[in-house]
Design a protein around this nucleic acid. Structure first.
Lengths: 265, 265
DNA sequence: AAGTGGTCTAGACCACCTG
DNA sequence: AGGTGGTCTAGACCACTTA
């Protein structure tokens, strides 16, 4: 079998088979190894919600038949998506779309750890939810046009009653129609879980820019520190399938009783 | 073939073959999939410097013969080590021990990016090198006994003449015998490259704890900021093969013209 | 018992690099 | 031309899960 199979025709398989359209009824991915094409087709199906978070994908033999490739090639695509955190494999049960709506995954991306003791759940308090038009910066960060509608959510996280994190969160209004303060208050479980369950928006990865800044008056008051006190400022852009940005967040962290944990390799 | 082959005996292979001792002359790894056992044996060989950074490993068929497994199993072990950043594979050439002594890899773990413009090389200035005895904290972090000899190195990184990073670096004296201020000054290239080339110490991964702090008088003066100005404090422990800690570092970063970049997934 | 993913093997052809 | 890693296939057996 060709190591890099193009759009059709190969020696061993008898018939012409344009993988892109005939096998799966979907648009053609660019030239690349077969398993990467399969990965692309699977990603497309995921972004089209063919399988929803928590659901099982078809079994490996089924997918192999659907794409007209061997099970080993499907497996390599599934392994790659598993490594990306998009899928979860469970021996004897099947391959599932990764979900972050579970209670156990309280914080999808928050890397803040307490100096002492185990990581406990934080309380949250929603301070404000506004609809407004995206400025140039926010539009660029979220891949929108200047003036498109965005939601701005301000919320506080507290540990044992003491404020620790103040987040400003910008979301494209188009993707989060119907998001209200009441729904936020009512939802049990992590916010990214709500985004996934209620709006079908799954966060796959994020980029952060971290700085140390001096607390401004207003934010110092909310966080219970003196004006000018050092705070960790964490600007985060979160992406869904196919690297589309869907959230911009500016967090201010108190790091007098917590620290931001990171692993490098 | 057994999915999980124990210490000897299987159906297809004719002879008894204790993988641990007969095939490679090394200690037995615990029960696990074959390719993980192979990965463990390769890691051991790497930590014993059977192959040095930058050198090529034997080819896949050779390794398969050496360990008496199929090439596919060796490949899976090599792929895993490549994913860990321990090996580098180059099509047509071979599989090499990852090295960080190249000029291109100026900063192994430093995640600091300039706000504007491309990432340029920084100047460095060594301020101090002392020999002293490990206190309880340092000993614990480096897996030493309290009172063991450690080196403390203080150095500055500057960008365009302006100080940006002040690092205090603790190293086990036993591993870095003969490290002097002169050798540090003389060495061209990144410090981790020097550790690798001159002392055979390879950093594989690191953990960081990040905080925002207010600059103390002495450090503020060195970094050219006002006392009390916010600084990013980055405490890093670096590990070599088999997760042995070999470096403790406390960095103070100015983040007025740079930011710490992080990727989450 | 049947179905799932996990492991292991064997062999083929490919793209890339070097002599 | 010969060696290297990269891709793809086919088939076997295993461990785990469910019924």
């Amino acid at each position: 079998m060709d190591a890099h199979r193009r759009l059709c025709c190969n020696r061993r398989m008898p018939a012409v088979r344009p993988l892109s359209t005939e096998a799966a009824g979907e648009a053609a991915p660019a030239f690349s190894p077969l398993y990467q094409q399969i990965k692309g087709l699977l990603t497309r199906s995921l972004s089209l919600s063919e399988w929803k978070p928590g659901e099982a994908l078809p079994s490996e033999p089924e997918l192999a038949q659907r794409f007209k490739v061997s099970q080993g090639t499907v497996r390599k695509a599934l392994d790659a998506l598993t490594a990306d955190g998009v899928l979860v494999r469970r021996q004897g049960k099947g391959t599932f779309v990764a979900t972050h709506a579970e209670a156990q995954v309280q914080y999808r991306f928050l890397r803040l750890m307490p100096d002492a003791g185990p990581r406990e759940a934080m309380q949250r308090r929603f301070l404000e939810l506004k609809r407004l038009r995206a400025g140039a910066d926010v539009a660029r960060a979220l891949d929108l046009k200047s003036g498109d509608g965005v939601l701005l959510l301000r919320r506080l996280l507290l540990s044992g009653g003491a404020p620790v994190v103040l987040d400003d969160i910008w979301l494209p209004a188009r993707l989060f129609k119907g998001l209200t303060a009441e729904r936020l208050e009512a939802y049990r479980g992590p916010m990214y879980g709500m985004f996934e369950a209620e709006f079908g928006v799954q966060m796959i990865r994020a980029e952060e820019q971290i700085r140390a800044i001096a607390a401004a008056e207003a934010e110092a008051a909310v966080l219970g520190v003196a004006p000018g006190a050092p705070l960790l400022q964490v600007e985060r852009r979160s992406f869904t399938y196919a690297d589309r940005p869907v959230e911009l967040r500016r967090g201010l962290y108190r790091t007098d009783a917590h620290y931001y944990r990171n692993e490098l390799s």
